[in-house]
Structure formats: C-alpha cells, structure tokens
Amino acid sequence: MRLRKASALAASAAALVLTATACGGGGDDGITIGIKFDQPGLGLQNEEGDFVGFDVDVARYIAGELGYEEDEITFEEAPSPEREQLLDRGDVDMIVASYSITEEREEQVDFAGPYFVAHQDLLLRTDTEVPTPEAINDLTLCSVSGSTSAENVQRDFAPDANLQPFNTYSECLTGLENGTLDALTTDDSILAGYAAQEQHQGKFALAGLELSDEYYGVGLPKDSEDLEDVNDAIAQMVEDGTWEELVQEHFGPANYEADAAPEIGARP
C-alpha cells in the first residue's frame, strides 16, 4: 500500500514536471527575449535583479512596437554558444545580445537589423600608449575563448601576439590591472561598458583602433513572421531619436563615439 502511494506521488510529480516544461518559455501572452546578463553597458543584471544596458533597452523598445506591455516581457539569459539553439527550440522569441551577423549564423537563424555597428578594439591601462596596428604583434593580449575577436587576432591583424583566452572578460581585467597582460581585445561596445564601470573608472581606456566591423542584429527563429515588424521597429527607433538617446545613456560615460546607426539590411 505504501509502495502504491509512493509511486502515485512519483507519477503525479513527473506529470507536473512535464506540463511545466511544456508551457515554459514563449507563452501566448507575452514575449521572451534572450539577452546577456553579464555584459556591462549592453546587458547586465544589477544587484536589485533588474536588467540594464543598451541591448536591454533596444529589446524593450522593439517589444513595445510589437504591441507588448512592459510587464509582458520576460528576459532570458542567452549565452553565446546556445543562442541558435534557444531560437530553434522556441525557448526565446528573439535575441538581442551583441549578436554579430555572420554567414554561418544566418544559415541557422534570421537576423533583423542591424541596429548597431561595433568595431574590435583594445582596452589598455591609462598609463600605456596606444600602439600602432603593427606593434600589436608585440603585445600580450587577452580575450574570451571562442569569440570572434580572438579568432580575428590570430588570423588577421596580430598572428604573432601572445593571446591568453579566458572564460570571461572579468578574468582578463585582473591581469590587465596587475600589468601581466597588455591589452584586452573585443568589440569596443563591450570594452566601453567595462571602462565605464564604477570600480574601473579611470584605470582603463579604449585605444580607438577600428580593427573590424561587427554588425549587431536581432536574432529571430528561421522564417519568422516578425522579421518585417522588427525591422520597422528598429528603423522607427533610429528615426525618432530614441536610438541616439540610448547610445548616449549607455556608452557616453566611457567617452565612446559610436558609429551612426546602420542601414537596415546592411551586411558585413
């Protein structure tokens, strides 16, 4: 008897789990948006649990244009390696997470936008001089493993430089601060976020070298019906001046001059 009770309990628990997963993510009323939780300036969860950053505000604006209220938006973390899967499985409805448009990714997902053009750059200690592009070969660089920036360094502009890949950008900052690393390299939009953080203010500065072009797009599932609407929303955001305001708000403190808003449909 006791055994039957236990198995009945287990069965109902299993049923509950199944239904819970079935309705998890992307319900009818509301929109689930994938963002970064750990990139200052772009998408960061602060101490109160709120989300702040340029990508977050862009996501809010687009969702608003698509007809969703503020409280109907659910933010999900979209780590770089999982972005295509999240869209493919329908766990998120769109991704606004410093998602560079590349040919390989366009085979898997649709991109609206781009809404921003970033460039690969170096973050240096304020006491070091900005190197010439040739002199980067002599530096000890740091980046995040598996990122496009790390690959660019090794392939294109500094094949002889020492490159230390870490899991997160914060780990690079330890070595940079202690002088054991010379520079941190990735998109300038991300670097600006770190330079502007309160605990780092005045310690690090952007070199201002435009080493590559990264077109940030809004990731949507393949053949999404929302593609046109999202493109229109981005165009409207640029037109009504919101885009400019957001750029000023999130990148202004780092003295970072962003490029003008890109044309919809522009590709690298």
Partner: peptide, 24 residues
C-alpha cells in the same frame, strides 16, 4: 583546462560551436 585557455579539445569545441553555430 579550457577555462584558462589551454588549446585542448573542449576549447576547440567551444570555438567551433561559436563559429559554426551547430551545437549538437
């Protein structure tokens, strides 16, 4: 060891997933 950037199998796997967008 991928956590500190040793170029072994797991690091290459992460690279390939990032570049090729084919996780499974």
């Amino acid at each position: 060891a991928a956590a500190i950037g040793v170029a072994e199998a797991a690091l290459l796997m992460r690279d390939m997933i990032e570049q090729e967008a084919q996780l499974v």
